[in-house]
Write a protein that binds this DNA or RNA. Structure first.
Lengths: 282, 282
DNA sequence: TGAATAGTGTCTGTAAGACAGTATATG
DNA sequence: CATATACTGTCTTACAGACACTATTCA
């Protein structure tokens, strides 16, 4: 650290006025993760979008669902992205909960197909009743992950269908402002499917066009025309790459075998796959 | 503030382990603002996109350009958005620099047509050599503002054509990671022009189609076909609203008078106005 | 063989871009 | 009138959605 002169409180060039607790109101920095995956509903067997939630084990909002998250470990020089990966790994139990700095690294292989991006930062005073907390929210997409098992905490982590958390259907709602964060994350995810190849992050390394369509249907929450979808995705350059293989079997009750594809190199889709809805939404 | 039990360091439900300086590495929270406007270049007279910058008056990066920004005033319960507006108002001198909590409010009338949105959060360890700083970046769009005058600080604020800050043309570059933040802000602005009515935020309350086209050309940095642009923007429902008036005069060297429009109610454009570039960008 | 699933052909309406033309202002 | 600027017509190509059709596999 370089030593600098007098404070200049109006710009980043200032020294923190702080280190004097009487003049400095601390702000805690946390990360929260909206982790999305697609899994079958236990009852209907239909594929639906799920979000990872925990049960809070302490006040406030004790017993309520919340998004996984926690403090950024500034003392360990932890980056924001690292903190998000670490929290996700700990909550899903996908990495040994050995704690310490190895957490994020140990998770790397299992979470390798994970897509992670920053969603936004939520820092309204009062969003946490205890103190001033600024939370950097992340959005994570992953292929179907194993049932989450709580890390070391008392909190139990579970995949919950996003439809169950819909305001109105959910009597209690998520803790803090997490309902808002989730809503922002869902809108971001829905929009990104339109013009990026993100949907492939929800699928395995090889997938059929039908499986890809089910991803779009689960995230957008509406059925798509199978035939037109098929022709459209194959016409986008660089989106899908043919593996020249097919599934081993057709449908359970008959049906043609489906061709297998892997994600192509394109990250931006031209032309885009626009959502059918949002018409006359004036 | 509610009193809670023992710390549970893995989730937001924890008390800060801190207030004990030996166990707590503080993180400073700041806001930085990418403020964009469109003004004529002094020499050519052409309209170009400008960004607001200050000259740093203290180490590190003393004398270098930087984005305006500063600490969030946690002690005053300041919201992140408020902090961004306050910093912008102070740096542009658009509000009395009376300081204190009235800063943001006093700026409201003058900055009323301002569009402000969160851009992203930058918190990589080491981005500020002095201490750990997490900065929430904001993107602001405004019609041509008066020449910025430094607030109370020694720093001088100026509108700079973004082309001058292009890596390669700019020998020294912006301080900290502000070049990256600016690049992210520009890409966001360019993308948002495509599918939102944001361009009208750069224009006055009433404007011609040609003025609107100049906004798109300045932000995208490439010429557009005047005729096709004209027909296209008028075909988007809710984008433009006819005022049934025209400009007082035609062009300086002859030419028809242009019809005046104001921004319509639509915030999302259907169909979108896609950038001509980005073709075969595979 | 019948049903289920995968994939294709074709038609229609909408929209983008190229380009040329018309309308109305200034000097 | 020459010229500059605003605006419109029309043609071609591309793409989205509707719908019907063919292809292949399973029980």
């Amino acid at each position: 650290m370089t030593t600098v002169g007098p404070p200049d409180s109006e710009s980043e060039s200032a020294w923190l006025a702080a280190y004097d607790p009487t003049a400095f109101t601390p702000i805690a920095v946390t990360v929260d993760v909206v982790a999305l995956t697609i899994r079958r509903l236990p009852d209907s067997g239909a594929k639906a979008l799920h979000v990872l939630t925990i049960r809070r084990g302490a006040m406030p909002y004790e017993g309520r669902r919340a998004l996984p998250g926690g403090f950024v470990r500034a003392a360990e020089n932890e980056d924001l992205d690292q903190a998000a990966v670490r929290e996700l790994a700990e909550e899903t139990g996908l990495a040994a909960h050995g704690g310490g700095e190895s957490g994020a690294l140990a998770a790397a292989p299992l979470l390798s197909r994970l897509h992670l991006e920053q969603l936004g930062t939520y820092g309204t005073p009062g969003r946490d009743p205890r103190m001033r907390v600024v939370s950097v929210a992340y959005l994570a997409f992953a292929p179907d992950l194993p049932e989450a098992t709580a890390g070391g905490d008392a909190a139990a982590a579970h995949w919950v269908p996003v439809a169950e958390l819909d305001p109105g259907r959910d009597p209690e709602g998520l803790a803090f402002d997490h309902a808002r964060i989730l809503a922002d994350g869902l809108e971001r995810a829905r929009a990104k499917l339109e013009y990026t190849s993100l949907a492939t992050a929800f699928a395995g390394p090889e997938f059929t066009v039908t499986e890809l369509r089910e991803v779009y249907e689960a995230v957008w929450g509406e059925p798509l025309h199978a035939g037109n979808f098929h022709r459209k995705v194959l016409s986008v350059p660089g989106f899908l790459e043919d593996t020249d293989t097919t599934t081993a079997r057709g449908g359970a009750r008959g049906g043609r075998r489906a061709r297998l594809y892997r994600a192509g190199g394109a990250r931006l889709l031209h032309p885009a796959l626009l959502r059918p809805s949002r018409e006359e939404t004036l």
